[in-house]
Simulated assay, not measured.
Amino acid sequence: MQSRVDQPMSRYDGAVPGASLLIVQDGKPLVRRSYGLSNLEEQTVATPDTNYRLASVTKQFTAAAILLLAEDGKLDLDDPLRKWFPSLPEVATRMTLRHVLTHTSGLIDYEDVIPPTMTGQLHDADVLEILETQNRTYFTPGTAYRYSNSGYALLALIVGKASGKDFATFLKERIFVPLGMTNTVAYEEGVSSVNRRAFGYSEEHGRWTRTDQSQTSAVLGDGGIYSSIDDLAKWDVALYDDRLLSARSRQLAFTPVVDSDDPNVRYGMGWRITEEQIGGSTLWHSGETIGFRNVIVRYPERRFTVVLLSNRNDPEPYQTARAIAQLFLR
């Protein structure tokens, strides 16, 4: 079985940007290994405790933070977005936190309307500033689906407002430390550091070039967490019981609310949901940003999970993770 797993992972092996692969059954790792390099310049070999930028895999943690604060009574999922951001234009009046969590808000994509005066790296607060100028939506809130990084940046700011702590500190104190995810961090340059950090690369004209950061890489709520397969194993097992989220909160996160732009995929709160012929229902999320491509695919009916993290722009890992899962689930 190990050789059969290594075959689809072979493209990550050698003196190239690499990947880390975790396969978990009933909370126990069946496969836990890494391929290739986490740092080409220093020839650092990737290991299971290498930390990769999760990109949009971050969204499940942002959603969990909001659900925890709802459990605390600090906010309500049906709060109007303008309750938390009265500076937003009138068009946001009908948007709720529930809409934002499920990508049904219609918020404008901030990446499409960055003003030319904003030349440095953006942060979540900059996203709010940009959206304050956008008195329009893609559709009436609650009537359609459009994946929204804008919304998840705002959710990170709401975590700060509702908890009285900044987003990164809240995640550390309420999620990462309690679960023993000691090397996971919502990374802020000059504030925090990433242990055993993988750097991102893109293949250009047959050569790998470091492309670790973009203008939007410092936005935390939509994609700023770094983690490893070892830490994500702890996250995965915590989603089966009440150690972090209540049964009601987990149900909210894992129940499909809306059809996505893929007819085979629905969306809950921070999770995509599909039905597989082999393995049953899946909860999953991918994440891609400049130099990183990642995915976590959970088969809760089988208590089986595949995590694939990589520090390169290609290939897309979701189908690889599914193919590897089917080797075990047949």
Results as ranks from 00 to 15, higher is better:
5 V>N: 06
8 P>A: 05
9 M>L: 15
11 R>K: 15
12 Y>W: 15
15 A>F: 03
16 V>T: 15
17 P>I: 14
18 G>L: 08
22 L>K: 09
28 K>R: 14
28 K>W: 07
31 V>E: 12
34 S>Y: 00
37 L>S: 04
42 E>S: 11
43 Q>G: 10
56 S>T: 06
60 Q>Y: 01
60 Q>V: 02
61 F>S: 04
63 A>W: 01
63 A>R: 02
66 I>N: 03
71 E>C: 15
72 D>M: 05
73 G>T: 08
80 P>Q: 13
85 F>V: 12
89 P>E: 00
90 E>M: 08
91 V>K: 06
98 R>V: 02
102 T>R: 03
103 H>D: 05
105 S>Q: 12
107 L>H: 14
110 Y>V: 10
118 M>A: 08
121 Q>M: 09
121 Q>P: 10
127 V>Q: 05
128 L>N: 11
134 Q>T: 05
139 F>H: 12
139 F>I: 11
146 R>L: 14
147 Y>C: 12
148 S>C: 08
152 Y>V: 05
155 L>I: 07
156 A>L: 05
159 V>M: 08
160 G>A: 10
161 K>G: 14
164 G>Y: 04
167 F>K: 02
168 A>W: 00
169 T>Q: 14
179 L>C: 08
183 N>Y: 04
185 V>I: 15
185 V>C: 04
185 V>T: 05
191 V>P: 07
194 V>T: 03
197 R>M: 12
198 A>R: 01
201 Y>E: 07
204 E>L: 08
206 G>Q: 10
206 G>Y: 07
212 D>N: 12
214 S>P: 02
215 Q>K: 14
216 T>W: 01
223 G>Y: 00
223 G>T: 09
226 Y>H: 11
227 S>L: 12
234 K>R: 15
234 K>V: 07
236 D>S: 11
241 D>Y: 03
255 T>E: 04
257 V>Q: 11
260 S>P: 10
261 D>W: 13
262 D>N: 15
263 P>Q: 13
264 N>C: 00
266 R>L: 08
271 W>R: 03
277 Q>H: 14
278 I>T: 15
278 I>M: 13
281 S>Y: 09
288 E>W: 08
291 G>H: 04
291 G>N: 11
294 N>D: 15
295 V>P: 04
296 I>D: 03
296 I>W: 03
298 R>H: 12
299 Y>V: 02
299 Y>E: 01
303 R>A: 05
304 F>V: 03
305 T>L: 09
309 L>E: 07
310 S>E: 10
314 D>H: 15
323 A>H: 11
326 Q>K: 08
328 F>C: 14
329 L>R: 09
